[in-house]
Amino acid sequence: MIVTKQDDGPVADTPNGLSEPESGEYNLRLYVAGQTPKSLAAIANLKKLCESNLAGRYTIDVVDLLVTPQLAAGDQIVALPTLVRHLPPPLKRVIGDLSNTERVLVGLDIRPKTASPT
């Protein structure tokens, strides 16, 4: 589940990648600090959400800042847990334990897109 991928930031050279991401892949990174209830809830919520909405089109990268605190500054992490969408651009952040699925989908720009094909 924990993919250690080090592409730092999105490759923001496709301007219409925003509107046509269906072929694109969701590159998500979840920052947590240790195995706190909030962290575990966030990981579980994210997995569930991705499976049901982005099956096969996503990678999740979980970063434990207690292990690698130097990564916090790079993605401007303040609140934890934070979910960062690196791809597709633009950069999006969702903070919290991701318990409100609706807001996560809005935050990741998934909701409008999944709404239109139906």
């Binding site: 920052y31 600090a33 909030k38 809830a41 966030a42 919520n45 800042l65 207690l66 605190p69 130097q70 916090a72 500054a73 992490i77 303040v78 609140a79 934890l80 847990p81 934070t82 633009p90 950069l91 999006k92 952040r93 969702v94 903070i95 919290g96 334990d97 991701l98 318990s99 409100n100 699925t101 807001r103 996560v104 809005v106 935050g107 990741l108």
Partner: peptide, 20 residues
């Protein structure tokens, strides 16, 4: 504009950065 809040969170990230 870049941040969506969903559920509970804390500022541990800030602590981690500052502590580091």
């Amino acid at each position: 504009a870049e941040i969506e809040e969903s559920g509970e969170y804390d500022l541990e990230g800030l602590f981690v950065r500052l502590g580091h």
